[in-house]
Amino acid sequence: MHLNAKKMAVSGLMLALTEACILAGSVLETNTLFLLAAASYFVGIVKREFGSRVAAAFYLAGVLLGFIVSPNKMYALTYAAMGLYILLIEIAWEWMGRTVTEETAGKYGKLFWAVKYAVFNVLYIPAVLLMQEFLFGRRLGALVLAAVLLAGQVGLFFYDYAYGYVQRELWGKLRGRFLD
């Protein structure tokens, strides 16, 4: 893979900010999820600007560094899951674009929602079902488990909303200053 200097510099800066967010999540325990979400959004930003390959490499570097620098490895794992979700949905959008036509664009838009929830649940449901003792310290009852799964679906809605906002409004305003 051949990267030019600007890509390397901007990606490096994003990686540093990613790790800063992961570390800050360890320090500010009340803001952990927000900061890890913010860290994961950088994967989407890199994908938008530099393509899938660079984004995949960025994600792997972020996960590796996260495991090295973060005092709480669970947070690095959470970041890994969130970043993977962002990477997969962005790649899914790109793949869908290869077969979309003017007539199918509307249907594809709705299909993308289904793809998002499918990708999320492929990561979330096995983690909740198989790692209950690890995540919650005990096995959960059926009702609590159902509530956790449902809360995840609601959480995804807000997470994705915030991601769209960051991409459109925040990065949309800032990208000219970094890339031009």
Binding site: W93, M96, E102, A105, G109, E169
Partner: peptide, 27 residues
Amino acid sequence: YRQFLSQLQWNGRRYQTTPYGGNFGSH
């Protein structure tokens, strides 16, 4: 050519429109 244009228009929609409706405040 039509498919490529559709693909570009599709990718352009990713970060320009909100699927949730509403505005995000003033610029």
